[in-house]
């Protein structure tokens, strides 16, 4: 029963991933012979492996800047998404006004807008003749900076795209906290902030970890948002990977970047697994 989906993934993704890893280590045979016959500036060995391709690209100053840009944007986006989705989810949990419902509806809108369109909409919104500039102009800020084609725009775009998931996950988590627990705390005189701090927060740790890790993984590997809204350089690793493929004809270097992103994503994924195992073990002790 498990076989069909596992086989599909193994054949169409797993196998290419293994081939890609072999290629970055200098092995150009078998499935890699096509790419090896196309690329330039390659580091190939017949026997064993070589890390020259890694050395080549990781000593590239542009890549350093792209890497830092990627890391910073990832951190900022993750923090903002966690904070905003906590706020929205908390508001939803504690009130049941039409306003709360409207906000919840609005905050999942991006989930249903294709990313290409989302990026384009965001670019136009923050462009030199976009809404923000226009409003700033009418409010008297004539020299308001243009955000289109900057890392700020990329950050805003990534936040926009990731908020629905955060809100969904956080509300799910908070809905899991039973009402009578909160009511009991309130009845015994706890203030609302205290209820949040000592009941809701500790019981919503796992969803928070999930939102943080998966937002981070998504931003690391994203292409469309930074490609459409970002600056020429430095930009996130996604677009620079495409550059190495298309414009510079250096597929091996592009693959190395892909693996760098992959490893970073796995690292973050490990945090998530660790958090799960840890809480899982603790609950095991309790019961």
């Amino acid at each position: 029963m498990v076989l069909p989906p596992v086989a599909v993934i193994a054949v169409f993704i797993g196998f290419p991933v293994v081939a890609a890893i072999a290629y970055t280590l200098g092995r150009a045979g078998g499935p890699n012979s096509v790419v090896a016959s196309l690329g330039q500036r390659q580091f190939i060995v017949q026997k064993g492996v070589t890390f020259d391709a890694y050395r080549d690209i990781l000593s590239n100053p542009t890549i350093h800047r792209d890497l830092w840009a990627t890391v910073w944007v990832t951190i900022v986006v993750t923090l903002v998404v966690v904070a905003v989705s906590w706020a929205i989810a908390l508001y939803l949990r504690l009130t049941d006004s039409w306003l709360a419902r409207t906000i919840s509806a609005l905050s999942v809108v991006p989930l249903f807008i294709p990313v290409v369109i989302a990026s384009y909409a965001i670019l136009v919104f923050y462009a030199s003749d976009g809404f923000i500039k226009t409003v700033a102009y009418h409010l008297g800020f004539h020299g308001f900076p243009t955000l289109g084609y900057t890392l700020t725009c990329v950050t805003l775009g990534e936040i926009w795209v990731n908020i629905p998931f955060g809100v969904l996950m956080m509300s799910s988590g908070l809905n899991g906290v039973p009402n009578n627990l909160i009511e009991a705390a309130r009845d015994s005189g706890a203030t609302m902030p205290r209820v949040v701090r000592s009941i809701l927060l500790p019981m919503n740790v796992i969803p928070t970890v999930i939102v943080a890790t998966f937002t981070a993984i998504y931003v690391l590997g994203s292409f469309t948002v930074p490609y459409l809204t970002g600056p020429t350089a430095p930009n996130l690793l996604g677009p620079s990977m495409a550059n190495f493929f298309n414009s510079f004809n250096q597929p091996q270097q592009a693959e190395v970047l892909a693996i760098v992103v992959f490893v970073l994503a796995l690292g973050i994924g490990a945090v998530y697994v660790w958090a799960n195992v840890r809480t899982g073990r603790r609950s095991g002790l309790q019961s």
């Binding site: 991933v17 590997g221 495409a242 892909a258």
Partner: peptide, 19 residues
């Protein structure tokens, strides 16, 4: 199942095309 999907697809097109 999840981890393989975290690999940036752009790095896989050539081998995928082969498959």
């Amino acid at each position: 199942l999840f981890a393989t999907n975290a690999f940036p697809k752009i790095g896989l097109y050539i081998s995928m095309a082969g498959v």
